[in-house]
Computed example of a mutant assay.
Amino acid sequence: MEPLLDVRDLSVRFDTDDGTVHAVDRLSFDLRPGEVLGVVGESGCGKSVTMMSILGLLPETATVSGTARFGGMDLLAARAPELRRVRGRQISVVFQEPMTSLNPVFTVGRQVGEVLQRHLGLSRAAARTRAIELLDLVHIPAAARRVDEYPHQLSGGMRQRVMIAMAIACDPKIVIADEPTTALDVTIQAGILDLMRELRERLQTAIVLITHNLGVVADLADRVVVMYAGRKVEEAPVHELFARPQHQYTIGLLDAIPRRGAGDANGRLREIPGRVPSLARVPEACAFAPRCPRADDPCVRALPRLVRFSPGHVAACVHPGREAA
């Protein structure tokens, strides 16, 4: 199947007073029609910067290179007017915190309707009617009444549903969901994930799911890209990643998931020691080596190459897989 989005050698850097920050380094991945691709990693690993660069939403201080082909267009080389026609119409975004993404002075119906007016040319009355249908589609109760309410009158879960309604308003080919459940409690998170699964099956929309939560990935994704310090360190089908992780960072993430029987003799969960390195000083070697229990001299001498372990499963690790018991 031909990729819907094909990203090759994407690099993003920011020139700052403290030096050059290499936010994304030679990242390649693709997205297939109707697929859910999970992009996983700790805060600061480059997940969100990757997607914002593809949509041309980074500040002017960013330098972007590589290619991102979508529908015969290289999004990284496209001019601003071309990108504006793509954003919201063919590729849309669900941001992490809806309260800062929704305009507090406009009703939710007005904001959903604006997407329809701008991209589909609907009249204001037709856009309002369609906005009610979309709010109902994302399971907001009493949609005909809620359409005239303001964001502060809705719960966090309902505001996120409004963001999803805006994202799917024009029947896009791709929805980028950037930590869509982070600020919500567990019960509401489950409802949002159920909604995204339902919309994916009903609309056949491809989804890029950006998250640090591997539980969310296991529940929704088909394939997973694991990022660390701006680089892809592992990629695999979701079942393969959980059953046979290869990169030591991926193993550390999986071992830190809360679950029955996890932890040491005192019941404490395992954690990855240390912290993500500064992106202004990422070495041309394994960036995870200072935190890795199996790191040795070869790990810090050169950057490990991505190695294929099975169909669709690659990882860049000198000591792949779990250590033998």
Rank of each mutant, 00 (worst) to 15 (best):
H247P: 03
L135M: 15
L209C: 06
F29L: 13
D30H: 14
R259N: 06
G215L: 08
T181I: 13
D194F: 00
L214A: 12
P237Y: 14
L122V: 03
F242W: 11
C286L: 09
M51E: 03
G113M: 10
A23T: 01
H313R: 04
I54E: 01
D9E: 15
L134G: 01
L195V: 11
C292T: 05
G41L: 13
T107D: 00
L199R: 05
M227E: 01
E323Q: 14
L303S: 09
R305Q: 15
A169D: 03
R130E: 15
Q204W: 00
L58Y: 08
L120K: 14
Q246A: 15
N213Q: 12
V175Y: 03
N266Q: 15
I207E: 03
L122T: 04
D222Y: 07
A287Y: 09
M196A: 08
E179P: 03
L199Y: 08
R197D: 13
A262Y: 11
M73N: 01
R26G: 03
R231E: 12
D264V: 12
E97T: 08
M52A: 13
R308L: 07
T250I: 08
A256F: 12
I168S: 01
M158K: 04
D255C: 00
M1Y: 08
T107L: 01
A218H: 12
S101A: 15
L134F: 10
V276C: 11
A285N: 05
G312W: 10
P141D: 10
P290F: 13
D148F: 06
L27E: 01
L254R: 06
L214Y: 10
P180R: 12
V39W: 05
S53F: 07
T182Y: 11
R69M: 13
I176D: 02
A289M: 10
R294N: 02
A280H: 05
V105L: 06
I91K: 08
Q160M: 12
E284P: 00
L10T: 04
L203H: 01
L55I: 08
H239D: 14
P237T: 13
T100Q: 07
L122H: 10
V147S: 02
V49D: 02
V318W: 14
L254E: 11
C170D: 08
A236Q: 10
T107E: 01
A169V: 02
T63I: 05
R281D: 14
D219Y: 04
E35K: 01
Q90V: 00
R301T: 14
G71Y: 02
R305F: 00
G274Y: 13
G41M: 13
L120P: 02
V282I: 15
L269S: 02
V307C: 00
I207F: 15
S28C: 12
D178N: 07
A144E: 15
K173R: 15
G71V: 05
A125H: 12
R124E: 12
A183W: 05
P180F: 09
